[in-house]
Amino acid sequence: MIWREAITRRGLLGKWIALSAVLLFRRRVEGEELPFELASEVPEGRTLQERLTPILAGRTPRHERVTLTMPPLAEDGGTVPLQLDVESPMTDLDYVQKLYLIADQNPDPLVFSASLHPGAGSARWKLNIRLADSTRIRAFAEMNNGDLFVNEVEVAVLVGGCG
């Protein structure tokens, strides 16, 4: 095959620019398809009182049996590790029935509520949560006989993880 035109630096440069323009344009078009949906408003928040009342159900929790371990300072509120231990024999007669985690300053303070069965044999959990701001965190454990226990810690958050 014979080249009709000589390969010049200028010619190659022009082709290279055209090619990168095409590739860039294609990336932009593909970028239009977002991997998530958009909403016009943020979801409605919940008040601390609204979340606490059903957990307490008129009871005063005792500061026993629950241990909540968290770093006192969290640089990134998007991922704050926590460990939750509840002292319990976890037998059919005496076990942890419910676990609740409340972060006072979060838009929805209830991070999770969970049900346990004695078949788990233990109540020791680890997970990562989001914190919007420096806050008090409370972990509640409700036993099968209705006793309610709590442990509270304070966490200072440098950069909030909720918005």
Binding site: N106, A120, G121, K126, L127, R130
Partner: peptide, 24 residues
């Protein structure tokens, strides 16, 4: 047997990590 059932809010971090102790 359902041993753990956790109702979570969006207060759980992305790529939810959950470790629990289990009696075998």
């Amino acid at each position: 047997q359902l041993i753990i059932s956790m109702d979570a809010s969006a207060g759980i971090s992305q790529n939810p990590y959950f470790t629990f102790a289990l009696k075998a």
